[in-house]
């Protein structure tokens, strides 16, 4: 229920933005802005889809964890108790 509402909310907002902001961008030939908006909207739609249809999308926090995984032992020694 909560997920569905979230999905509906995101979709509705995406629609509003698509109707109001996007045509304006194209009219004014602001292409970089257009692409940033499209990517952001697409990603948020993707995430809200993943909530409803129950598939997982890659989490950017995991990326950070993966990048710094070689340092894990060091940090463990440094920041755990004692």
């Amino acid at each position: 229920m909560k997920n569905t509402l979230f999905f509906l909310f995101v979709t509705a907002t995406t629609l509003i933005i698509c109707v109001t902001v996007i045509p304006n961008l194209l009219k004014k030939r602001l292409y970089p802005e257009f692409w940033v908006s499209i990517v952001a909207l697409g990603l948020s739609l993707l995430i809200s889809f993943s909530k409803v249809f129950d598939f997982s999308v890659p989490n950017p926090s995991d990326l950070i964890l993966w990048i710094y995984s070689p340092l894990k032992g060091l940090i463990q020694g440094l920041l755990k108790q004692g």
Binding site: K2, L5, L8, F9, A12, T13, L15, I16, V19
Partner: peptide, 18 residues
């Protein structure tokens, strides 16, 4: 008009879900 409808819809969603 369509736009008002969508805005209204999303606000209602937000409020209903509160």
């Amino acid at each position: 008009m369509k736009l008002n409808g969508i805005i209204g819809l999303s606000i209602t969603l937000l409020i209903l879900s509160g």
